[in-house]
């Protein structure tokens, strides 16, 4: 599983097969899943904001696999598509075949801080503890999820659905989320400080800087910081971190 890990960041890829069935109202289970996820978009913030250490994540439903039908750039494609002297049987043989999935899949792709031990179990346990009910809401129509009613079973289930990344690239950094949020808060606040203190005399800048440090508490993650997932400037700062 090492290619799921880059530094302290972890790439979790989950494909959970959705049952092929319909509700009494004749709505496909996959469409219910889609609709519920769509509903998450209309909430004040994503339920995933409550899941510790989540950097970025996404959900979608994989209905089928796709095949671009125009001629491509590979040697075989070019030859068989364009050379008229290639026998028809060979041309047909080389044409891409049409694939279709027999199940639809709920895809969950997540980047999180796993720490030096790449703690997938800890992340999934945190996810279950934070939003267990919301997880059931989404995964409830998936094959094999019926028995999942606690964190341990959820971890086992997710591992059965997990795919290994072939390459995971971290273009950002892999610090714990609290560190990243605190750093962003400091960057924002210090930029304001620098603007507000332009051209002031040395003694005033020093006094103001001390007051600034007392307010923002740069080394204290439990001090003022950014809220995870906040998308409005007036909701951005969390003065005291929520515990648990």
């Amino acid at each position: 599983m090492s290619s799921n890990i880059s530094g302290n960041a972890y790439a979790l890829t989950i494909l959970s097969p959705i049952k092929d069935g319909f509700t009494q109202d004749e709505i496909a289970y996959a469409d219910i899943v889609r609709d519920r996820l769509q509903g998450w978009n209309a909430e004040h913030n994503s339920p995933m904001a409550l899941v510790p250490q989540t950097y970025l994540c996404r959900y979608f439903v994989l209905d089928d696999v796709y095949l671009e039908s125009l001629p491509g750039g590979s040697a075989i494609d070019t030859l068989v598509d364009w050379l008229p002297f290639v026998p028809d049987t060979l041309r047909r043989w080389a044409w891409p075949k049409e694939d279709h999935l027999k199940s639809r899949y709920l895809v969950f792709s997540c980047n999180f801080h796993g720490g030096p031990k790449a703690d997938l179990d800890g992340y999934l346990r945190g996810m279950w503890n934070a939003i267990g009910d919301r997880i059931k809401e989404i995964w409830g129509y998936c094959h094999g999820f019926d028995q999942v009613d606690n964190a341990d079973k959820f971890i086992d289930y997710m591992k059965k659905c997990q795919l290994t990344a072939t390459l995971f690239f971290v273009g950002s950094n892999d610090d714990p989320l609290e560190e990243q949020l605190k750093a962003l808060y400091l960057k924002q606040e210090f930029a304001k400080f620098a603007i507000d203190n332009q051209g002031l005399d040395a003694a005033t800048v020093k006094t103001n800087f001390q007051a600034f440090v007392d307010r923002v508490r740069p080394s204290e993650l439990d001090g003022p910081t950014w809220k995870a997932g906040a998308y409005r400037v007036d909701e951005l700062v969390e003065l005291k971190k929520n515990k648990g």
Partner: peptide, 24 residues
């Protein structure tokens, strides 16, 4: 298409996250 996408720091670009670490 993604149906639901969550970002822990919607106001920050990747370069902001990296530079914030330096600022801190």
């Amino acid at each position: 298409e993604t149906i639901h996408y969550y970002n822990a720091y919607p106001l920050a670009a990747s370069n902001d996250v990296k530079s914030a670490k330096t600022v801190k």
